[in-house]
């Protein structure tokens, strides 16, 4: 059995990253933590929010903290797949085609307003996210590691958007909302940026190798059988809920377990407790279910459904049969 104390060395590092980010982003502890969870699981994050609440700043802060390359892509209706992945351009001097890397080939990518672009371009991004590689002109380019996409989308009620298909939403590990800061937090933002932007002062607190090391350690976090069952129970219930048209896929269960591992890791635990699962479930599952139109008309939100489901699932408390 592995000793737990090995983990103690990582926790301060993670804490440093969080502190670093919080120098720039005021009062968004939850979003910060969840972003790091996704980063630790090599997953991607979908932020659903209006412009100007600090999404870009968040990704930049993360990138700067881990010393990774940061790219930002503003999605527009006329953006083409090659604008993301890069194109091969004919070099007249060398008489051959030469690949010009697109912005997608970075470590941390902010895909802004992802639902403003055409499905074709969206799928190019999503392929990269899923496969970890992009193919241009028959040539496959492996994306650098770590590869972390933080996509944002305007709430879909806004005009001129192409909602992401279900299959593509599923690729995002977490979906969350940034939300407006409170007046006090907003005041703090103003204070901090009065003379110069704090992002410029950020130090790199973690190098990429450390991050990759941590990503591999996260996978060692222990998940008890009953906690796995708890995860499966929750996901299963999304499939039988009467307001839900399409429930979460097994990928949802997988995502829930992985994020729970990362979350436990972040909190200096080498085992997952139901609290982790319970906390993460709305972020992991709400974008993976489709509500029935009746439910939508009634104004029910996916987060509410997940909340109700969690209330009905029994938390495992004791070993059913003791193994001696």
């Amino acid at each position: 059995m592995k000793s737990t104390y090995e983990f103690d060395t990582y926790q301060p590092t993670v804490q440093k990253v969080i502190d670093n980010i919080e120098k720039v982003i005021v009062g968004k502890r939850e979003v910060t933590e969840l972003s790091i969870v996704a980063l630790l699981c090599s997953g991607h994050v979908l932020l659903e929010d209006v412009p100007g609440v600090g999404k870009t700043m968040m990704v930049r802060a993360i990138a700067k903290s881990v010393g990774a390359k940061f790219n930002r892509i503003q999605f527009t209706p006329d953006l083409l797949p090659s604008d993301l992945t890069g194109v091969s351009i004919y070099n007249q001097r060398e008489m051959q085609f030469e690949f010009r890397k697109g912005p997608l080939l970075g470590n941390l990518v902010l895909a802004d307003e992802i639902n403003r672009t055409s499905p074709k371009t969206q799928s190019a991004l999503l392929e990269g996210m899923e496969e970890g590689s992009v193919t241009v002109d028959g040539e496959t380019h492996i994306l650098p590691k770590p590869f972390f996409v933080m996509a944002t989308q305007n709430p879909i009620e806004y005009e001129g958007t192409y909602p992401l298909p279900e299959a593509q939403l599923d690729r995002f590990l977490l979906k969350m909302k940034m939300g407006y800061p409170t007046p006090e937090q907003e005041l703090e933002v103003l204070n901090r940026t009065e003379h110069e932007h704090p992002i410029d002062q950020l130090d790199t607190v973690l190098d990429i190798d450390d991050l990759l090391d941590m990503q591999s350690k996260v996978k060692e976090v222990y998940v008890e059988e009953s906690v796995k069952r708890y995860i499966v129970d929750i996901v299963n219930r999304t499939r039988s809920n009467r307001s839900v048209y399409l429930g979460a896929s097994p990928r949802g269960s997988l995502a829930l377990m992985k994020t729970a591992q990362a979350y436990a890791f972040m909190h200096n635990r080498d085992y997952v407790i139901p609290d982790d699962v319970k906390y993460l479930a709305p972020f992991v599952l709400s974008h993976r279910i489709i509500l029935k139109s009746e439910a939508t008309f009634e104004g029910i939100q996916a987060e509410q459904i997940i909340g109700e489901i969690i209330q009905r699932v029994r938390v495992p408390l004791r070993r059913e049969e003791r193994v001696k």
């Binding site: 609290d275 319970k278 969690i310 009905r312 699932v313 029994r314 938390v315 408390l317």
Partner: peptide, 20 residues
């Protein structure tokens, strides 16, 4: 102890985790 607490009126909901 959980059982005793329950008997003393501090009921634990089935969805409550131990920490909560």
């Amino acid at each position: 102890l959980l059982w005793l607490l329950d008997k003393h009126g501090i009921k634990k909901g089935q969805d409550q985790t131990l920490r909560e």
